[in-house]
Computed example of a mutant assay.
Amino acid sequence: MARYVAIVIALFVAAFIPLLVVLEWAGWRLGATIPLSTIASEQSQTERVVWLGSFKDYAPYKLERIKRVQPEVLLVGSSRCGQARAQMFRPYVAYNACLTAWPLTHVVDFIDRATRVAKPRIVIVALDYFLFGDFLAEAWQKERTMDFSQGLDSHRRKLHDVADFVIRNNGDRDAILAAVTAPQTEPVDGNRLVGTEAIRGKFGFRQDGSVMVAPPYRRIADETLSRGPQYVTSSFPGAPQLSERQFGEIERLSRLAHERQFQVIAIQYPFLESAAAFLDTNESYWPYSGIWRDLKSEQTANRFARLGISFFDMSRTQTSQDPNNFFDPAHPSERGMLKTYLALLEKPDFAKYLPRIDRSSLAADLDRGQNEQFDLYH
């Protein structure tokens, strides 16, 4: 019996080890198991690399980039600010660390981590009305926790991503072999794709931390934009009033800013006009749009001011009126982001923090890409 068990174990090991070796080799070739610090270093050497891996690795990857970039201006938040480009802040060194934190507790925690490895002068936070609802905050707290440990469990998860990559390619031998043996590039700028999600989706995070709009989102943008109110209400559950528990995280951020000596600028970025109008005027949704009204109120603005936080509500501006400034009702495109910052720079209370930005130069950027919805900067 003992001999039989030994034979079974030997056969299992004989089969498993070669499989593991192949999986490890494929993981390295796809960029799934390359250390995030290595990817961050490579992006410091060239802007021609785009990375995207597992969702849980977004924040630790961007933390590695922050160590190397040492930005003067740091953007933090959800996907709502993902299209902001470093060029919009020139001559300041800026890094887009959005898509790292959704609930406010994660926002503050990430800023805490980031300001331990860098010393930004300004931290721009994407601060939206829906962040002040407890229901959504609790759901995101569970679903969107990042993996900062990057230990053995993380490595196993990345090997699983490799296996998942094979499965999602339906076992297409030619496609899989091409992915592991030859450089893969995205279709917009021809940048090399690193990571299973980048290779499969043909998009990812650029050198400046901004994220490309994925090809499927580009294809369905017109249809998605036509569903402004439905998109916002289905994506972001409302609440009758701003949660004091969530506002406590803003107070924690204020204390951190005072301790680390950085200025917090909070921005509610534009929504498509139809979505903003619904939140403003729809009486049936009134009980759920209380947080929308509270965030826009003078009382809340005064609370921010007392905490030393400059809040700018850009949720419904001229930018909101043009669908070409968005790729869905809640996400401004690069064009929408540039228009937002051009509008902000007209405000003395914002411009005073970034006095060296040449607004006319940014306006020229907009003119050069006047027919471009998604990619102004190539």
Rank of each mutant, 00 (worst) to 15 (best):
G190T: 05
E47T: 06
L127P: 00
Y58L: 03
Y269A: 08
I220Y: 07
Q141K: 15
L11A: 14
D189Y: 12
E42W: 13
F247R: 01
P120D: 02
H378N: 13
L19W: 13
A275H: 03
V93C: 13
P229Q: 09
G77W: 03
F132Q: 04
I167E: 14
S226F: 08
H106R: 11
I124E: 00
R260D: 07
S243M: 08
L253R: 01
D174I: 07
Q184V: 09
V123R: 01
T46A: 15
S310Y: 02
L295Q: 05
F247E: 01
S297D: 10
D109H: 04
A214P: 02
F374Q: 02
T224D: 08
V180R: 13
P348F: 05
R85I: 00
A15Y: 09
Q207G: 03
Q207E: 03
A118E: 05
D294E: 12
S54I: 06
A10L: 15
A276K: 01
G195F: 04
H258C: 07
G228S: 10
L242Q: 02
S361G: 07
I199P: 04
E372H: 11
Q43N: 03
T196I: 11
L23T: 06
V69N: 00
I176G: 12
V76T: 01
Y217I: 06
A178N: 15
L177T: 09
Y288S: 10
Q261Y: 11
R65K: 13
P332M: 06
A10C: 14
A59V: 03
F130S: 09
P237Y: 12
S361N: 10
V232P: 03
L23A: 14
D147W: 02
L177V: 08
A14L: 15
G308H: 06
F130D: 04
P229F: 10
T38W: 14
A14E: 08
E42I: 08
G27Y: 05
T281I: 07
W28M: 15
A126W: 00
L362I: 05
A178V: 03
I167T: 11
I167W: 15
V13E: 11
L193E: 01
E143S: 13
R29N: 13
L52P: 00
Y231H: 14
P91K: 04
D161F: 13
E259T: 10
A118I: 05
E143K: 14
R306W: 02
N371Q: 15
V211L: 06
P183G: 12
A2T: 07
P355V: 03
Q87W: 09
S44H: 07
A266V: 02
M1E: 11
S284P: 03
M337L: 09
L242N: 00
S37A: 15
S361M: 11
P329H: 12
Y269D: 01
P237V: 08
D222S: 14
Q43I: 04
Y4C: 11
K296A: 15
P332L: 03
Q373K: 14
L11F: 10
R192P: 06
G290T: 06
Q141N: 15
Y288G: 13
S361L: 14
E334A: 14
S320H: 07
L225I: 07
F374A: 01
Y341R: 09
F262W: 02
